[in-house]
Design a binder for these strands. Structure first.
Length: 535
DNA sequence: CGCGTTTGACCGGCGC
DNA sequence: GCGCCGGTCAAACGCG
């Protein structure tokens, strides 16, 4: 536990903290309901993993790259640069304590630099006392003093805690404001009048969320997946289809639960069918991905709006398609799949294989694998849905791919214009120097993100684009990571994930790879500092 | 024997 | 209404 607390006002960590915020607070990329700041075990603000900068120098030089998280030692929130309470300037990096250890190398012991000259238990003065002649009485006095100091310290910590909470709130507000601003800008570029309503709706949600005492950093990417809330209550538009088979905000479900499915399977009949289809395992709300957000109700859009959305979201299923050259019958993506069918598809002599995720009972994720008719070496893998279970590190990115794709392309609360806007964002964020490699189709019936890894002679060339996200490759299985093309789903997913988190706002920042370790289904720390690729 | 694959049947949506 | 098509089911089958 880092004992240091407080705020300092350096410039670089501002962005760092700001950048981290969406990541830190969203523990469940597949479930946008987790974006809301409910006090869950996963996104309790007490557990915010501040990035800590280890530095033995007294000079808080924030131009140096942040060190890995495992070097964390202490946090100095009250550095000398601490000028005001502008929460935007919260510094989550820290330096070694300036006062007593300026010449000592960094250690793992925690020291408290309060800037209040409060005595702490391991101050030099205390140590010097040991050398003095000590009478029992003076020892008592000292002990009392110590107690007082500790109490004062406790009070101070409480104050800092409150300060931090306030700061968090303020950062959140700023984040939303910026997001709104961004959306407005996009709005001006785009054609839609509809988006205005979306924004309005988001603002409304935001208001209500705050008035309710729960911060709701709404992100426009996650509108559709907020349907999870709908699943937990009779939806005004869905006629009360109460619960998805898994309670998972997967793409498929998102569209259906908005009451938009073709066969109106918002009723029990549809549910029964899906239960029959998936529900052997009886997996439900208590799925490991933690959909314990039944009470996390965010106001929906207006019924009129919903009707429009329902019409538009009809027949919509978000898909993520990856084209890659592979001799293997199926790319290894870290998940376990069971083949449940094979069909000859029209226009392609190669059969299409259907796979279902078997890592958890009732997992709705499916994928289709089919070789390209023109080039048999090209394997076309299409993913659909979100996993409802914890994933191994190797499967994280792909899961994020599908879930993020669902957010951006499907999100049932979005208009098609929104979807396209997001798709454009995605393309720009993903492939800033090679947008032709990603094809995004938001048209009916299935909005699909297609990543073509076969067109570039060196699929990684664009990954080396400087000044872009650092994306850790997290425990990618050898069979999947040994080819350049195989890297793409990982990166793709991560980029999608981050893009959705940042709403395209901060993609040009130099992101700290460690931020990706804040994910609930994320890899263990020891895996996060592995190879990274820049896009 | 259990698990995964194969494969024909079945179902629903859609276009004509 | 009919046929096509994509998607899924489930019995049969194979393998370890």
């Amino acid at each position: 536990m880092v004992r240091g607390g407080g705020l300092s006002m350096d410039s670089d960590p501002i962005g760092s903290f700001f950048l981290h915020k969406p990541i830190v607070l969203n523990s469940f990329p597949e479930d946008t309901n987790h974006h809301k700041w409910k006090l869950s075990p996963h996104n309790n603000i007490d557990t915010i993993p501040f990035q800590v900068n280890l530095s033995s120098s007294t000079n808080n030089n924030h131009h140096s790259p942040p060190p890995p998280l495992h070097n964390t030692t202490e946090m100095d929130f009250f550095s000398d640069n601490n000028n005001n309470d502008n929460v935007n300037n919260y510094n989550v990096s820290a330096s070694a304590s300036n006062h007593h250890h300026s010449t000592t190398p960094p250690t793992l012991e925690f020291k408290l630099n309060t800037r209040l000259n409060l005595l702490t238990t391991n101050t030099r003065s205390d140590q010097s006392m040991v050398d003095d002649e000590i009478s029992p009485k003076s020892e008592d006095i000292r002990a009392e003093n110590k107690l007082v100091v500790l109490q004062a310290e406790l009070e101070r910590m409480k104050g800092e805690n409150q300060k931090l909470r306030d700061a968090l709130h303020q950062v959140n507000v700023n984040y939303d404001a910026l997001q709104m601003h961004f959306m407005n800008l996009m709005q001006q570029k785009g054609e839609g009048v509809e988006e205005q309503e979306v924004i309005g709706g988001m603002l409304e949600e935001k208001k209500q969320g705050e008035s309710g005492g729960v911060l709701v950093p709404r992100q426009f990417m996650d509108l559709g997946l907020a349907t999870n809330a709908d699943t937990d209550e009779p939806s005004s538009s869905s006629g009360g289809r109460s619960q998805d088979r898994s309670g998972t905000p997967n793409a498929e479900v998102a569209s259906k639960e908005l009451g938009t499915s073709k066969n109106e399977n918002v009723n029990d009949e549809g549910f029964e069918k899906e239960k029959k289809e998936y529900g052997r395992g009886g997996e439900s709300e208590d799925s490991p991905s933690g959909h314990a957000f039944a009470g996390d109700k965010v106001p929906r859009f207006s019924p009129e709006r919903n009707n429009v959305e329902q019409a538009e979201a009809t027949m919509r299923k978000a898909r993520v398609s990856v084209r890659a050259r592979s001799e293997a019958p199926m790319i290894t993506d870290g998940c376990q799949w069971r083949k449940y069918g094979q069909k000859m598809a029209k226009g392609n002599p190669c059969p299409r294989a259907y796979y279902r995720c078997t890592m958890a009972a009732g997992c709705p994720v499916r994928k289709q694998v089919q070789r390209c008719a023109e080039d048999r070496t090209v394997l076309n893998t299409t993913y659909e849905g979100n996993h409802n279970h914890p994933l191994p590190p190797a499967a994280m990115a792909m899961a994020q791919t599908t879930s993020s794709a669902a957010r951006m392309l499907l999100s049932g609360s979005m208009s098609s214009a929104d979807s396209m806007m997001n798709a454009n964002l995605l393309t720009r964020a993903l492939l800033p120097c090679s947008s032709s490699m990603a094809t995004i189709s938001a048209s009916a019936p299935f909005p699909t993100v297609t990543l073509d890894l076969t067109q570039s002679p060196n699929p990684l060339h664009f990954l080396r684009h400087p000044n872009k996200l650092q994306i850790p490759l997290q425990g990618v299985p050898q069979s999947f990571s040994n080819s350049p093309a195989s890297l793409m789903p990982q990166i793709f997913g991560q980029a999608l994930y981050n893009q959705s988190k940042f709403s395209g706002l901060q993609m040009s920042h130099d992101a700290d790879p460690s931020q990706f370790g804040n994910h609930p289904q994320q890899v263990p720390p020891h895996l996060t500092d592995t190879e990274s690729v820049t896009i």
